[in-house]
Nucleic acid binder design. Structure first.
Lengths: 204, 204, 204, 204
DNA sequence: TATGAATGAGTGTTCATTCAT
DNA sequence: TATGAATGAACACTCATTCAT
């Protein structure tokens, strides 16, 4: 009984990824059982293995795809400002990072909270990607520091601080809450840039 | 002739708490098995139950004690500056928060990453305590805003941002790394206060 | 092409019920471990859960099916004498009850000795069924009493006594023992009916 | 710290026996844990072992003491009628058996329902005692049969039936229920003796 | 591709029993 | 005699994974 045109295989895989995202976000990787996952998808647990190889691989896949997408969107957005100065590029970074972390809050949350559930190989790979992403921000800060526009104290500490601050939105931002995305971005732009201005600064 | 000095009961309980802290920090609550825990402590798995009632209760106990200690130390430290202005109190808060999150990095990490592993009752209680702690910072920011010393955009968003930034240290700070605790505190004081200064300010 | 004839699922379930019946009869519900049960069936303990939901549910299932079968056979047998008088119907009841309790001695034994191992819901349901069964006998006795054929003293006490007497066979009757089933039935018919006859009883 | 006069040792043992009787009656031997028992008594579980040697021995002790008491009371009561005829002695037996099974319903219930929980040695001993007790009734029936006073069909079957009937009271009799003990005894005397009477029985 | 049944290792928890104090 | 802590085996149950159909 060969594969027919109407095969719902890809649909099933997509349903698995979606349900996996939801369940891991809600209960954590260790706490999510494949029985739960299968039930959420509406198939039997054995059938999962027609689509995934192991539970671990599903986790890796979700995180890897998220990281790839993070870089893809980053490049798409930041390319438009690559010729501008550090201040403009930092603003663009903030806007992008906050937006992505609001829109993909579950992927993002899993992407760092379940790192420790990854097997060593996968762990190393993803951590390396995260470092590359941090480097994107570090580059901006170092350039700004070199041009006398920023005064970071320590660029690495500043970068970690900024990333922590911005990433935090995925834990408290509510889509229809008191503030909209743009207001949050504006607030954080002020706060971050104000924090980096050399004394007597005049940020807008 | 009841409890003698040589009694090892309390010692065992302390060993369980210590090992539990370590293992949950390293592998997560769900991934830590009581067999691992007992083995780390050096007793049989059944013996754990002479000291804890359930695995869940151990988690709750670790988090609750940590929250209580957080408030206790906060009160101890902040009492000394309670009559000073918002700027000084914010600096004291930053110094305290960073210090606590460096010294108790494992308790702190568990305290938010394993919230979802708490049973509903426990969850509500701890989340409520966290909100009370956030309020401490909010009070400082609101007072500063009222006195025209801070310009937060939105005090709540600012508070979340500051907390995220400061809390982040527990994930990357290394005791004998490039920077010591005081340098990190100084850097973050500049960054946070700079971010809150209204006009072309000149924070000390 | 779903379930095929060779599928051993139903066979396994039947083997579990059979082995469960045997082990609970021999050792009691509490004393029977699922490891014993699985071993008796020839599968791994975890595989049991492809067929039963809990140990408790297996017990309930065994007792419920037995009670249903008791009523089914009762109706089948007693329907044939429903138009006859109380004496004939009591004889039919005795013959039926003794027969069933000899043929299904294990189900019957479990059915009352493990009642206390049932969860409250299940307990209530089964006890209610048992009361309905007792009522069948009570109806006969009351009708006989009303027609002046029986002199029970107290119909309820008489019914309990008769049921206890007849049910006892499942603890001592041996299939190829000194007496066969028909002889036991005859003896008990004499004894029960003699005990209920009004006339000629000259004991003080 | 030697044994003082006020030692409550015997009192503790008595409390253990009483609590054990209650808990085994309510939940069964297998289902009763020594922790439950200790808690009911108001001591720690380890302290039980100052009074009992094993859980099994407690069960044996409870049953053995009950059997001894059964014989002791039987002898006390039946001695008074040992020179009378089978009818009077049967009546005395019925009155005694019912009385004992009402007053000591828990001991009696445990005495047969937990037989299978006894170790082989203990099991054999108790079963042997039970057979001796049955023999007491058998003697009466055989003598009555020999004298033409009873027509039992089969004395052994009749004895089992009578014992089952009378023993049943311990499962349904309620001290302040509709009927008092004397009424039950009277009813069963009529029923049993009526069932054994030779003449006037015209049922086929 | 889906299913239901199987596996074997694992889970948190309870057990009767022991023993130093 | 009582205690609290320890033991090691056992418990019912769940897990991710496999595989014939």
């Amino acid at each position: 009984m060969a594969r027919t045109i109407g095969s719902h295989g890809p649909k099933t895989m997509e349903a698995i990824r979606k349900a996996g995202l939801k369940l891991i976000y809600e209960h954590g990787y260790e706490a999510m059982s494949l029985r739960q996952l299968a039930s959420e998808v509406g198939i039997q647990v054995g059938s999962l293995y027609n689509h995934i190889s192991t539970k671990q691989d599903l986790l890796y896949d979700l995180i890897k795809v998220h990281m790839d997408e993070l870089f893809r969107q980053f490049d798409e957005v930041l390319t438009g400002v690559q010729d501008l100065g550090p201040v403009e590029r930092l603003k663009a970074f903030i806007a992008f990072h906050v937006t992505y972390h609001i829109v993909r809050k579950r992927e993002v949350f899993i992407g760092y909270s379940e790192l420790r559930s990854l097997e060593p190989n996968h762990y190393e790979e993803i951590v390396s990607l995260r470092r590359q992403y941090e480097r994107r921000l570090l580059d901006i800060l170092e350039q700004g520091e070199a041009q006398g526009l920023f005064k970071c104290g320590d660029t690495r500490v500043a970068a970690y601080g900024i990333l922590s601050m911005l990433t935090g939105v995925c834990t408290w931002f509510r889509p229809h809450g008191r503030l909209n995305k743009e207001q949050v971005i504006a607030t954080y732009c002020d706060q971050v840039l104000g924090g980096l201005m050399p004394q007597g600064s005049d940020q807008p």
